[in-house]
Computed example of a mutant assay.
Amino acid sequence: MCDALATTKEHIPPKALFPKQKDLLREFSLRKELITVPSCEEHNNNKSKDDEYFVYLLASMATT
């Protein structure tokens, strides 16, 4: 959305919503074929903390 050069890929939905391979019982990855869109490094990195916070919110709501 900004005028900066898109040098990274943003995952849609965020990769943080899916378990890492080491946390799965089977040998497939839920993170492997996510949709990506071009993004500048600044906005992609800044959004990562928001993604982590969103995951924590979802996890806290799931236990209630």
Rank of each mutant, 00 (worst) to 15 (best):
Leu57Gln: 14
Lys22Val: 10
Glu52Tyr: 11
Ser60Arg: 15
Ala16Tyr: 05
Lys9Val: 04
Met1Phe: 13
Ala59Trp: 04
His43Asn: 07
Val55Phe: 00
Lys9Asn: 08
Asp3His: 07
Asp3Asn: 12
Glu42Thr: 08
Leu17Asp: 01
Glu33His: 15
Phe28Ile: 14
Val55Gln: 07
Lys47Thr: 02
Asp51Ile: 01
Cys40Ala: 12
Lys47Met: 14
Glu33Asn: 15
Leu30Tyr: 11
Glu33Asp: 15
Thr7Leu: 09
Leu25Thr: 03
Ala4Arg: 15
His43Ser: 02
Thr36Ile: 07
Ser48Asp: 07
Cys2Phe: 10
Ile12Leu: 11
Ser29Cys: 14
Ala4Met: 10
Ser29Lys: 04
Ser29Leu: 07
Ser48Trp: 01
Met1Ile: 10
Lys22Ile: 07
Leu25Gln: 04
His11Ile: 04
Ile12Tyr: 10
Met1Asn: 12
Pro13Val: 01
Pro19Ala: 02
Leu24Tyr: 11
Ala4Tyr: 04
Lys20Ala: 11
Lys49Cys: 06
Ile12Cys: 06
Lys9Trp: 04
Glu10Tyr: 00
Phe54Leu: 13
Pro13Lys: 03
Leu58Arg: 12
Asp3Trp: 02
Thr7Cys: 06
Asn45Phe: 03
Leu25Arg: 12
Pro13Phe: 06
Leu30Ala: 05
Lys47Val: 05
Leu25Pro: 02
Cys40Leu: 05
Ala62Asn: 13
Leu5Lys: 13
Lys22Thr: 05
Lys15Pro: 02
Asn46Tyr: 09
Lys20Asn: 15
Met1His: 09
Phe28Gly: 01
Ile12Ser: 05
Leu24Arg: 15
Ala4Asp: 10
Lys32Met: 07
Glu52Leu: 10
Lys22Phe: 06
Asn44Val: 08
Asp3Pro: 03
Glu33Ile: 00
Cys2Gln: 05
Asn45Gly: 01
Met61Asn: 03
Lys15Trp: 03
Arg26Asn: 14
Glu52Pro: 05
Pro13Ala: 10
Asn44Ser: 01
Ala59Glu: 14
Asp3Lys: 08
